[in-house]
Amino acid sequence: MNWLSRITPPGVSKMFSKRDTPENLWIKCPVSGEMVFHKDLESSFYVTPAGHHMRIGPDLRFKYTFDGDWETVESPQVARDPLKFRDDKPYTSRLTAARKKTGRDDAMVIGVGRVDGVDTTILVQDFSFMGGSLGMAAGEGFLKACEVAVAKRTPLIVFTAAGGARMQEGALSLMQMPRTTLGVQMLKDAKLPYIVVLTDPTTGGVTASYAMLGDIHIAEPGALIGFAGPRVIEQTIREKLPPGFQRAEYLLEKGMVDKVVDRRDLPRTLGNILRTLLKRPEHRPATGGVPAARAPEAQTQPAPSQG
C-alpha cells in the first residue's frame, strides 16, 4: 500500500476503484496471435480476421444457422453410470462437472426451425461436454433427432464435433455406432435429406459412423477430420504425414468431403442444397439481426491451415 492510499478516506477510494474487466473482452486468435474484440468476433460468427474458425457451442450454432427463432427438443434420458466406471475419479463426478460447465445433460442438442426458408431439424454436438464424446445419451439424442425429422417431414443437418467414443461407457458407447446408422436409414426410407457439417474436430467413432453417412458432407475451413489423430498415425507408421493431412481442405482434394464452406456462408449454402434436394423454389428470407454472409473484404482471405 502506498502513502496516497493510506491517507485517502475509504469512501473516496471505493468511489474511484478500478472496474472489473471481463476476462473474455479480448480473445486471441490461435493462428495469428491477434487480439480480437469479442463483439467483433461474435458479429463475424467467431471467425477471426486470419480466417480461423473458433469452436462454438449449440446456442451459437442455432443462432447463426436458423433464420430466426427455433424450438429445442429434449433428448431421452439414459442410465447415468451403467458400468459404475472409475478411473482417477468416478464417471458420475465427470458427468456432474460437465453438466455444471455447459448447463446441458449431455453433448447432443436438437433444434427445429427454418434454414434459409426451409423447415429443418438440426442436431449439434457440443465439444465442450466431455469432448463431444459418443455415449448412450449422444446415441439416443441422434436417434431422437432422426425421429423428429421424420415426424415433421424435415431434412436433418448434423454439426459434428467429437473426440470419439466415451471410454467410461465401454462397449455400450461403441454400440451407438451401429445404432446411429439405423437413424440414418430411417431418413433414407422417408426420402429426407441428411446433411453432415464436419467441424473441428470430428474424429474417432463419430467419423466411423454417422459423420460419414450423409447425402452431402460439408466441412468448415481447417477442421480436423479423421479416425485416429495425426500423432498416433505418425507413431504407428513411423513416417511424417503430408502438410494439411486430415484437414478439411486436404480431404476435399481427396474426395472425402464434398465442399468446404466458410461458416458465414453456411446458412445460404445449406438452404440452396436443401431446396435442390427437396426440389423447392428459391426463397429470399427477411434480413435479420445476424449477418447472412461474410464481409466482402474477408471473402478473398484464404483460411490458413491449423497446426
Rank of each mutant, 00 (worst) to 15 (best):
I195T: 10
L25I: 04
G113S: 03
Q168D: 15
E140G: 14
S32I: 01
M177L: 13
G141H: 04
H283L: 12
A161G: 08
A165T: 14
E169A: 10
L83R: 08
A190L: 01
T102Y: 09
S173R: 02
M15F: 11
G135T: 10
V197L: 06
Q299G: 15
A228F: 14
T203F: 15
K191A: 01
F142A: 13
I157R: 01
E147K: 15
T72P: 04
V158D: 09
Q306A: 10
P58Q: 11
G214R: 02
T21D: 02
G204R: 09
D258E: 05
G271L: 05
P267R: 14
F16T: 13
S209W: 05
E249P: 01
L83K: 06
P242Y: 00
D69E: 15
T287C: 09
K240P: 00
C29F: 02
G164I: 12
K63P: 03
M167E: 13
L187M: 07
G289A: 15
P304W: 00
M35Q: 13
L266S: 09
Q168Y: 07
L277E: 12
L277W: 05
V118F: 02
I195E: 10
F37I: 03
L251D: 11
V36H: 00
R19Q: 03
G68Q: 10
R55I: 14
I273R: 12
D59F: 07
T121W: 03
M130P: 04
P76G: 05
K14M: 15
E71T: 06
A165D: 09
P49C: 01
I233N: 08
K259E: 15
L123D: 11
Y194E: 01
A171R: 09
D262F: 04
V109D: 12
W26V: 06
R19N: 02
D87G: 05
F142E: 10
L266D: 10
L143N: 12
G229P: 13
P230F: 08
A161I: 07
F66K: 00
E297M: 07
T276M: 12
M1F: 04
T300Y: 05
P243D: 07
R94L: 15
L83N: 11
F159M: 12
R280D: 02
K191C: 01
D20S: 05
R179Y: 10
G132M: 06
E74Y: 08
D262T: 04
M177F: 08
I56Q: 04
L251M: 07
A137E: 09
A138S: 11
T120F: 02
R179S: 15
P82N: 02
L213A: 12
F45Y: 14
E239D: 04
Y91T: 15
P178T: 08
L198N: 14
S17Y: 02
P201F: 14
Q125S: 11
K100N: 13
R284D: 15
G117C: 08
D106N: 07
